[in-house]
């Protein structure tokens, strides 16, 4: 019952978000922005595979120093966008800059300052964790070979893998592999970290550690672009949010701004939802809905205590009363027009 009314609401507001799409590009970099204030900046970035458009005119704007949550259902184009940003695949149209430099022209200069975890960990299975990191470091012309062993061990230590450094990668668990991929992004001081689902496969303890690590790196001055489908991760970590849906960036804003835009709803627990709904409507609440044992409505300028008083006055038993802005999850469901399922 609840599920039905929820999905009904979702499709309604999904349609609404279609029309409000221009708002998404509000914070996109315009010609007025000085170069260098964005760590990642893309203009109408597009990637078409055969007939399918995987990334459709994406205008990313990741401010320097932010932790940018890059959200979207599986298959919405997050990883393809990240591959485009790193120059692994070529855009069908559009341009982008990393740390103020044009890509892919400046890749050799920019990428040493960028740490990336793309599409899960990948290492040579028959080499140890340490040997794998040394191999990656060997390719980095900006890295000093004399400090390689020290930097590798420091990176392993930061992700808690130092004790397993000599184990073959083959013997690593998924969580250890994820940690090793994170360690690879820490081999040199980075100004930008692009992390594609960094807590994937980690146990709760590991997840907490990695989130703390990301916070620490950001505090040290790095910009973090964090792709994820975990809303809790965004709520805990991020200062900015971009939402992908079907290859398009449907929203992009500072998290606080996104929250401020969320209107608070009154929620009444009662055994007579219909009667309660009538009272709410009578008081001027909008978008009033009834549920199994509850009624809700957008509070607007009506004082919450007045609602309770009126309910009691009309003889509607109030078992519980809360006023809350919608959870982030509801916001995103309204933006993507569906639950966090695979996009077609």
């Amino acid at each position: 019952m609840t599920a039905v009314s929820e999905s009904g609401a979702a499709s309604e507001s999904g349609a609404a978000s279609e029309s409000s799409q221009p708002a998404a590009s509000q914070t996109a970099p315009g010609p007025g922005h000085p170069a260098g204030s964005w760590a990642v900046e893309s203009t109408r970035l597009t990637k078409r595979f055969h007939r399918q458009v995987a990334v459709d005119s994406v205008d990313l704007a990741v401010p320097c120093g932010s932790i940018y949550g890059f959200l979207g259902p599986n298959g919405s184009g997050k990883t393809t966008t990240i591959r485009l940003l790193l120059g692994l695949i070529r855009p069908t149209a559009g341009t982008h800059r990393l740390l103020g430099q044009p890509m892919p022209a400046a890749a050799a200069r920019v990428l040493p300052r960028v740490g990336a975890l793309v599409d899960g960990p990948a290492f040579h299975p028959y080499l140890s964790g340490r040997a794998n990191l040394l191999r990656l470091d060997a390719g980095d012309r900006a890295a000093d070979p004399r400090t390689a062993h020290r930097r590798v061990d420091e990176a392993l230590d930061r992700v808690g893998l130092l004790t397993a450094a000599t184990k073959r990668y083959r013997a690593y668990s998924l969580g250890m592999r994820q940690r090793l991929a994170l360690a690879a992004t820490l081999l040199a001081p980075r100004e930008l970290l692009i992390l594609d689902e960094p807590t994937n496969g980690l146990d709760p303890q590991g997840t907490r550690e990695v989130r703390a690590l990301i916070k620490r790196l950001a505090a040290e001055g790095a910009t973090v672009l964090l792709s994820t489908h975990l809303l809790s991760e965004v709520e805990q970590l991020c200062t900015h949010v971009g939402v992908m849906h079907l290859g398009r960036l449907v929203a992009q804003a500072p998290l606080a701004e996104l929250r401020a835009g969320a209107v608070p709803r009154a929620h009444v627990d009662t055994d007579r939802p219909a009667a309660a709904a009538e009272v709410l409507r009578g008081l001027g609440l909008t978008d009033v809905r009834t549920h199994d044992a509850a009624a809700t409505g957008v509070l607007g300028s009506v004082a919450p205590e007045k609602v309770v008083a009126e309910l009691v006055h009309r003889g509607v038993a109030v078992r519980g009363f809360t006023v809350a802005a919608p959870e982030l999850e509801e916001l995103f469901v309204s933006l993507t027009g569906e639950g966090f399922d695979v996009s077609g």
Binding site: A122, F123, A184
Partner: peptide
């Protein structure tokens, strides 16, 4: 193995 993408982002 997928190591190609990591080699290229080092960047090599």
């Amino acid at each position: 193995l997928g190591t190609l993408r990591y080699q290229l982002t080092v960047p090599v």
